[in-house]
């Protein structure tokens, strides 16, 4: 069996982004392996640990993506293919380029993030499935192989979940709850240096062009709750956190 994780590198959510000349300036910004892709990497490693075979990470992006690839290798992925392309490529164009390489790899399945943090888009997984003409299961929270031909998976719906059976090969996208990713280990970091990392230059033209980027300015609401009645104040705080801030 062969399990492929498709990953991307994105700015750390803790980083302060700034705009220079209408574009996001990534200078000085900490870049990380997209968290949802990290769940995909972890799941691929777990599938390999359970079923044997090989794990491969595939990434399409600029040279700096190599850092995220190294993270995946240090977590335990066997080898990597880096499709090197500088500049922005829309998800459909990326999926087409990725599909060529992935088809040649002939994997049992492909896992990728349910959403791409930097684009705020959920397109890559389904677009990749479309380009490969394989089925897709999105927002996967559980997966179980049934031999080499089928998998049973649970995936989230808006307010519920479905359990599905899907013919392999297929594309799966990750959702929170799928797993708790491991940290790369220090010996893993050293081993990653010696693992195969194949570079493939990609020349493709994006179908979508970014004209301008802006960053949403968030201002403080300065909402004060009257605390004379502590019980009522607590109720109001919970209501605001639930209904307005939507954090609980």
């Amino acid at each position: 069996m062969k399990f492929v994780a498709v990953i991307r590198q994105v700015p750390d959510g803790e980083s302060r982004l700034k705009i220079e000349g209408g574009k996001v300036d990534l200078g000085g910004v900490t870049m990380i392996l997209d968290q949802m892709d990290e769940w995909a990497v972890e799941e691929v490693i777990r599938l390999q640990e359970k079923h044997g075979g090989e794990s491969v990470v595939v990434a399409l992006g600029p040279e700096r993506f190599e850092e995220a690839i190294r993270t995946a290798l240090a977590m335990g992925i066997d080898r990597a293919i880096h499709l090197v392309a500088e500049g922005y490529l829309d998800p459909i164009t990326q999926a087409e380029a990725l599909a060529k390489v992935i088809r040649a790899e002939a994997p049992t399945l492909v896992f990728t993030g349910g959403q791409q943090a930097d684009w705020d888009s959920q397109a890559l997984g389904p677009a990749l499935a479309e380009a490969l003409a394989w089925p897709v299961v999105s927002w996967t929270t559980q997966i179980e192989l049934e031999g080499e031909t089928h998998a049973k998976a649970k995936h989230d719906l808006d307010e519920g979940a479905e359990v599905v059976r899907v013919a392999l090969p297929a594309v799966f996208t990750s959702q929170q709850g799928l797993n708790e990713p491991r940290y790369p280990t220090l010996p893993g970091i050293m081993k990653a240096k010696r693992k195969e990392l194949k570079k493939v230059p990609v020349s493709a033209s994006s179908k979508v062009e970014i004209l301008e980027q802006t960053i949403q300015e968030k201002s403080r609401l300065n909402k004060m709750i009257d605390g004379k009645d502590p019980v009522a104040a607590a109720h109001e705080l919970v209501r605001l956190l639930h209904e307005e801030a939507k954090v609980i």
């Binding site: 190294r70 993270t71 790369p184 280990t185 970091i189 990653a192």
Partner: peptide, 10 residues
């Protein structure tokens, strides 16, 4: 430098 960075990242 990469192994140093990766170690510090972890």
């Amino acid at each position: 430098r990469e192994t140093f960075k990766d170690t510090l990242d972890v």
